[in-house]
Computed example of a mutant assay.
Amino acid sequence: MTHPAPHGTHTAHEHVHVETDLAEILDLDAEVLAEHIAAVTASLPTETDPRHIVDLGCGTGAGTLALLRRFPNSRVTAVDSAPAHLDRLRDKAVADGVDERLRIVRADLDTPTLPDLGRPELVWASASMHHMSDPDRTLRQVRELLSPGGVFLMIELAAFPRFLPPAAPADSPGLEDRCHAAIDREHAATTSHRGADWTPKLTAAGFTIESENTRTLHVPAARNPAVTRYAHTTFTGLRTRIGRLLTPEDRTALDRLLDPESPQSLRNRDDLALRTRRTTWTTRAG
């Protein structure tokens, strides 16, 4: 999945920096939620391996690689607009020995015409649809792309993941929610469809919904140490991007969380956990 920066707000150097930070976050999300991704791919309603799969907004390849593992006889076309993400995906595919079954396409999906992606039997889109300026158009494009009777699986998250208990940190309770509220205001123009009601949109685009499943995911750092790295990378990005919008008190509290020498550092906390809610729609083209 790709989370583009707001248009016109970053220099070329800053854009590369944002892409790199996001690539780290996507890799950490995939590491922490590997079991969830594997469970979703395992539930796909396919009796045989699809010949061709398309991953729209593939990011650094969490879904792409899971699909290649799940369907060893399939070929996957992975599409994204961020070169840093695609480079990481290519390296991972080579390391996994699946690069011969992978086609990588760099393209902006938020356009009136999709690139030539063939006629896949399965299209996967994880946390990418809400970034489209006209998601209804994109859903219609996916419907036209699919082979008759093909499967479209879409995953969306209601909000950014959370890591701290609601009353934390002690010197600034609710800091995490205020940080995310600030970044939501900053990105309102480019992520206005996060949390949209996707069921009627899918139906209007011509899909038959076979299942809709919302899961609340909770992964304590005590169970998976990558949660702490995920939290630190996320809060570092928040400090860089919206620190100026916080009160001096909140900036100080955030800096303490990021300071490895501070007793309040994220790395010294025993209450960190990834908390997120994700909804999966499994649909079929009529």
Score class of each variant (00 low, 15 high):
residue 198 W to N: 07
residue 208 T to H: 05
residue 167 A to N: 12
residue 80 D to K: 00
residue 39 A to T: 13
residue 234 T to H: 11
residue 70 R to G: 02
residue 161 P to I: 06
residue 63 G to D: 00
residue 270 D to W: 04
residue 75 R to L: 02
residue 128 S to H: 03
residue 250 D to N: 13
residue 146 L to Y: 04
residue 120 P to C: 04
residue 27 D to C: 12
residue 84 A to R: 10
residue 6 P to V: 15
residue 230 Y to T: 05
residue 91 D to Y: 01
residue 28 L to Y: 03
residue 64 T to Y: 00
residue 123 V to Y: 00
residue 194 R to P: 03
residue 204 A to R: 14
residue 77 T to H: 00
residue 145 L to I: 09
residue 268 N to T: 13
residue 281 W to Y: 15
residue 23 A to Q: 14
residue 163 F to I: 07
residue 281 W to A: 06
residue 119 R to I: 13
residue 197 D to C: 05
residue 144 E to S: 12
residue 118 G to D: 01
residue 237 G to D: 12
residue 230 Y to R: 09
residue 174 G to T: 12
residue 244 R to Y: 11
residue 223 R to E: 15
residue 285 A to P: 00
residue 39 A to M: 00
residue 20 T to F: 07
residue 12 A to T: 15
residue 164 L to Q: 11
residue 90 R to G: 06
residue 254 L to A: 08
residue 124 W to E: 04
residue 170 A to C: 10
residue 160 F to C: 05
residue 18 V to F: 13
residue 149 G to R: 04
residue 126 S to G: 08
residue 263 P to G: 11
residue 150 G to D: 06
residue 42 A to K: 07
residue 198 W to S: 07
residue 186 E to Y: 10
residue 51 R to M: 05
residue 143 R to Y: 14
residue 32 V to S: 08
residue 175 L to P: 08
residue 277 R to Y: 02
residue 72 P to D: 06
residue 265 S to D: 07
residue 193 H to D: 09
residue 120 P to F: 01
residue 87 D to Y: 00
residue 50 P to L: 04
residue 217 L to W: 14
residue 261 E to D: 15
residue 249 E to R: 13
residue 191 T to K: 07
residue 75 R to T: 14
residue 279 T to P: 05
residue 251 R to M: 11
residue 114 L to D: 04
residue 227 V to M: 10
residue 262 S to H: 14
residue 46 T to E: 11
residue 5 A to R: 12
residue 80 D to C: 02
residue 137 R to N: 06
residue 44 L to R: 01
residue 52 H to F: 10
residue 174 G to M: 11
residue 217 L to G: 07
residue 220 P to W: 15
